[in-house]
């Protein structure tokens, strides 16, 4: 017989290291032709941080995304940006890049103010143009400013770094471990075959509060990939040990989900902007995985009326639990 059930999992996740400093640095150079180079130590491992950091710099400088080039993760030329871990790169390195861009902008504004004879605070930089907020006719192109800078020997180079505001935990675990938190709720529907113990995931809905999605497609990619890794965690993945020896040390017996094992994931992006984040952003890499396994476990319990306390929930465990539950029911009837 096949039984269906639904389950929810909610989670919170602190962005960055726990109550420890974890700074990130960046350099931003604006070149004579108004293109931009970012130097960041941030290692992109596929999640798309390079793209996101370029977006942040482009937005801050008001230049086209395609005019940005990113040099990353080379200790010979890039500043330390800490680890690509703890879902911290958008929030922490994003802030560092934004600050570096702001610092480059200061030089531009200073030069612009000098050339236009207006105070810096009166200027805005938009579409490669510096304008006075008070009188829109007072303007100068970024290109001209760059040329003037070149003439008098000024380089437009900014640096920035960011370290989230935290407070280490005391002996009772009290403190401010993280500057900000990501949140999520996922819902999963499963179908369980009560005779073979097989579990089918039918639907997944995953809503994540990421602060601000700098790149929604990349955020969805994280949510989808994380959910599937979470599904593997719930149902099939397990390093099996025999006195410290891994007995499934190949891809033929350590099984991760294939395309046939999971449904398409429905992701929902929630944006509760974080004031300390770059343009309101927090993070999503790890949160994407955290609630999935528990939502699946809750869905299985909902389907069968039996709770599972051990991961992964394999077909064998399902059948054993059903058998135990049946025996218990029989005993109850006997009395």
């Amino acid at each position: 017989m096949k039984k269906r059930g639904c389950g929810i999992g909610s989670m919170w996740y602190g962005i960055g290291n726990t109550g420890l400093p974890n700074p990130s640095g960046a350099f931003v150079q604006v070149l004579d032709d108004c293109t931009v180079i970012i130097h960041t130590g941030c290692a992109d491992i596929g999640q798309g941080s390079t793209t996101v950091l370029a977006q942040i710099a482009a937005e801050e400088l008001g230049v086209n995304f395609n005019d940005i080039s990113v040099i990353c993760a080379d200790t010979g030329v890039t500043p330390d940006a800490g680890k690509t871990s703890a879902s911290r790169q958008t929030y922490i390195s994003g802030n560092a890049v934004r600050k570096a861009a702001q610092s480059a902008k200061e030089t531009i504004f200073k030069k612009g103010a000098e050339l236009l004879q207006v105070p810096e605070e009166e200027l805005i930089l938009k579409n490669y143009q510096l304008n006075s907020l008070k009188n829109y006719n007072i303007q100068i192109s970024l290109k001209e400013i760059m040329a003037k800078c070149r003439e008098d020997g000024t380089l437009v180079i900014g640096h920035g770094w960011f370290n989230p505001q935290t407070k280490g935990l005391d002996k009772r675990g009290q403190g401010i471990p993280y500057a900000t938190y990501a949140f999520a709720t996922q819902w999963v529907e499963v179908e369980v075959d009560t005779e073979t113990g097989e579990i089918d995931i039918l639907n997944v809905v995953a809503a994540h509060d990421v602060g601000k999605a700098v790149n929604p497609m990349a955020v969805e990619g994280q949510i989808e990939g994380g959910s599937v890794m979470g599904a593997g965690y719930a149902l099939m993945e397990e390093i099996i040990l025999d006195d410290g020896k891994i007995i499934n040390s190949s891809f033929s017996n350590y099984l991760i989900p294939t395309i046939k094992d999971v449904p398409c994931v429905n992701s929902i992006i929630v944006e509760e902007e974080e004031v300390t984040g770059p343009f309101g952003a927090k993070g999503v890499g790890e949160p994407a995985l955290i609630p999935t396994a528990t939502a699946i476990a809750n869905a299985i319990s909902n389907a069968l009326g039996i709770r599972f306390y051990e991961l992964p929930i394999t077909p064998e465990k399902i059948l054993n639990s059903l058998k135990t539950a049946n025996n218990t029911n029989k005993n109850q009837r006997d009395f």
Binding site: T196, E198, M236, S252, L255, P257, T258, I259, K260, D261, T314, P315
Partner: peptide, 10 residues
Amino acid sequence: RLARRKALAL
């Protein structure tokens, strides 16, 4: 046929 996942599994 039963396997531990739906493809690529003994």
